[in-house]
């Protein structure tokens, strides 16, 4: 199948990465903590890739990406609990379903808000993100198991190196193929000029919805993997700061670059967790001083991203 033939490089690289990491993990060359954040960085890459489709490729500024990440996380955790899922194979359908729920939510919310432009869209997505956060905070009123502001506990730990490697590879290939198909081309046209896009026959409303729903689907998958890695969810994991994390990764990696998102995702997780190791516990909150400073510096110095070449 052409799907695999043209993805030879990606498959080989992933296999290499997997083998190296597997050796490091199996012989305990790295601590369990490092193991966990390594797996976490794959998750961050998947979710950021979703935002890159929405913002980097299609130009739709979203401040609510973490909400869809959260929807995927909570949905999957809920299914795992009610269906008593413990094994990877029964987890995969749950993963897909949770991604689909996040994607569908994105689709439905996108119908009214994607008509808005720039700052208005930013405010609308911010509003939606806040709404979802409030919902998570009060979720125990709908179903006790969701935990509300106490958090969702007792999620089975299923996400492992194999799962994230496989899922990430698969989603990267799909995303790359989408981007290089006519749909990706239309997304890039819309980012460049919506009026011109309509003048050549692109159904811009439909294409924007498609990009948004797909990006939210990726966020949902990331969220579901996250839930089954850390086994505990708290509403504060999915607030606007988290959305900004994803934005930083997309901007850092360069808008509209898959490789950029991958590098930036790794750098970002390394940076945040690195600060956690370097900074004494009492000064941990200083991270939230460093990060905005870094962002300002980045915007002044390399507005088109750290990794891709400037215009």
């Amino acid at each position: 199948m052409n799907f695999f033939v043209e993805a030879r490089t990606q498959i080989l690289v992933s296999l290499g990465v997997y083998i190296i990491l597997k050796i490091l993990f199996a012989f305990h060359f790295v601590s369990e903590y490092i193991e966990q954040i390594t797996i976490y960085s794959f998750i961050v890459i998947i979710a950021s890739l979703g935002l890159n489709v929405i913002y980097g490729y299609t130009g739709q500024f979203s401040l609510g990406h973490a909400a869809f990440y959260g929807i995927g996380a909570y949905a999957s955790a809920y299914f795992s609990r009610i269906f008593g899922i413990e094994h990877v194979y029964s987890f995969l359908p749950v993963l897909l379903l949770s991604g689909a729920i996040a994607g569908l939510t994105g689709y439905l919310i996108g119908i009214p808000i994607l008509r808005l432009r720039d700052d208005f869209l930013a405010i609308a997505t911010l509003g939606f993100g806040t709404l979802v956060r409030v919902f998570f905070d009060n979720s125990d009123r709908f179903a006790e198991v969701l935990g509300g502001s106490r958090g969702f506990v007792g999620i089975p730990r299923i996400t492992n190196l194999e799962t994230v490697c496989f899922v990430t590879l698969f989603l990267i290939i799909i995303t790359r193929n989408m981007i290089s198909s006519r749909y990706g081309l239309f997304w890039r046209c819309i980012k460049e000029d919506e009026t011109a896009s309509m003048s050549i026959g692109i159904d811009t409303a439909k294409m924007k919805l498609m990009a948004f729903a797909y990006g939210c689907f990726l966020a949902g998958i990331g969220g579901a993997l996250y839930a089954h890695l850390y086994t505990f969810l708290h509403p504060s994991n999915f607030d606007v700061l988290k959305s900004i994390d994803f934005l930083i990764i997309v901007i850092l990696g360069g808008m509209g670059s898959i490789m950029g998102t991958i590098y930036a995702g790794i750098i970002w997780v390394g940076f945040i967790e690195g600060l956690r190791i370097i900074l004494p516990a009492a000064m941990l909150d200083l991270r939230w001083v460093f990060i905005p400073l870094l962002l300002i510096a980045l915007m002044m110095w390399r507005p088109y991203g750290l990794i891709t070449k400037g215009r």
């Binding site: 193929n177 749909y183 026959g201």
Partner: peptide, 14 residues
Amino acid sequence: LCEQGYNVFSGIFR
């Protein structure tokens, strides 16, 4: 490609 297209699945699976 607006007029002479293919669907999403053809695009994904080339």
